[in-house]
């Protein structure tokens, strides 16, 4: 029975697939789908190096503090950071008192609700609070940035490229020398959106956030160029997405070393046991 029906079923699926294949091929020839502006002009993130790259990389706390400052002064106007708590900032090298002051002075207050009176109000943030939500009424939906470095292909490099990638759409050419608006006149950026070839569909609602050198004043003397600020905030957002990165790698090496030794011993033991059987 199996040998009779098996091949029949197999042929049934094969013919159905051939039919789909034929239809697809026919459509591909008769109605080839035109290339899209996104496919031709979307750029992959720029290759930049970060201190936390690779199996030995760790966060640079000074850079994270600078990046936090960029977040605080620029990004936090529109973007929330709700998975992160103020107390987590001690990992950036701030002491308890500094964290307490940062929380207390944070512009956006913690919201309170009195279940007895029904009154809503606010109070200064405490170290144990998460960063308060940011509500944005304008165009677009600024995403929460807590996990942005893990939820985008390219991670920190993508964030850096996006922040530094704003450019004039008129006359924009890709690597092959094709000019966007000549090939796709309809792809002109609509009003209220901004052109950025590193964004998946080339136009995004966020205006260029880092516009001029020195926009943020660094307390450690580092020159706050646009590129440096973009790098620093990308590093900071990598930390917010993966705060245990350092601990993870620090744990990983001894574990792997132990396992290597154990595996070598296991191999030698296996050879011992099998010595008389080969």
């Amino acid at each position: 029975m199996v040998r009779l029906f098996g091949p029949l079923v197999g042929l049934f699926f094969a013919v159905a697939l051939l039919w789909s294949f034929g239809n697809g091929a026919y459509n591909a020839v008769t109605q080839p789908s035109p290339p899209t502006a996104e496919a031709l002009f979307h750029k992959h993130p720029k290759e930049v190096a970060f201190s936390f790259d690779g199996a030995f990389g760790t966060f640079d706390k000074a850079q994270l503090q600078r990046g936090f400052k960029v977040y605080q002064e620029v990004c936090s106007n529109c973007h929330s950071l709700k998975q992160v708590a103020f107390r987590d900032l001690t990992q950036l090298g701030y002491n308890e008192a500094e964290v307490k002051a940062i929380a207390k002075n944070w512009g956006n207050k913690a919201q309170t609700f009195d279940p007895k009176t029904g009154d809503r109000g606010d109070r200064p943030n405490l170290p144990s609070d998460h960063f308060p939500p940011v509500y944005y009424a304008g165009q677009g939906n600024p995403p929460d940035l807590s996990l942005v470095a893990k939820s985008r292909h390219g991670g920190a490099q993508y964030i850096h490229s996006l922040l530094t990638g704003y450019t004039d759409q008129v006359g924009y050419k890709n690597g092959q020398g094709q000019e966007l608006l000549k090939m796709f006149p309809d792809a002109k950026t609509p009003d209220g959106l901004y052109f950025n070839p590193y964004f998946a569909n080339l136009n995004l609602a966020m205006p260029q956030p880092l516009t001029s050198d020195g926009q943020v004043t660094y307390s450690d003397g580092k020159a706050a160029t646009v590129d440096q600020m973009a790098l620093d905030v990308s590093a900071f957002l990598t930390w917010t997405a993966e705060p245990k990165l350092d601990k993870r790698k620090q744990t990983g090496w001894p574990v792997l070393g132990f396992l290597l030794a154990a595996t070598v011993l296991a191999y030698l033991a296996k050879r011992n046991v099998w010595a008389d059987k080969h």
């Binding site: 132990f258 396992l259 030794a261 154990a262 011993l265 296991a266 030698l268 033991a269 011992n272 046991v273 010595a275």
Partner: peptide
């Protein structure tokens, strides 16, 4: 020597 290696391997497994 063989016994030592076998015991060491089992000990490593236990510690792990």
């Amino acid at each position: 020597r063989r016994d030592f290696i076998n015991i060491a391997a089992v000990s490593f497994a236990g510690v792990g």
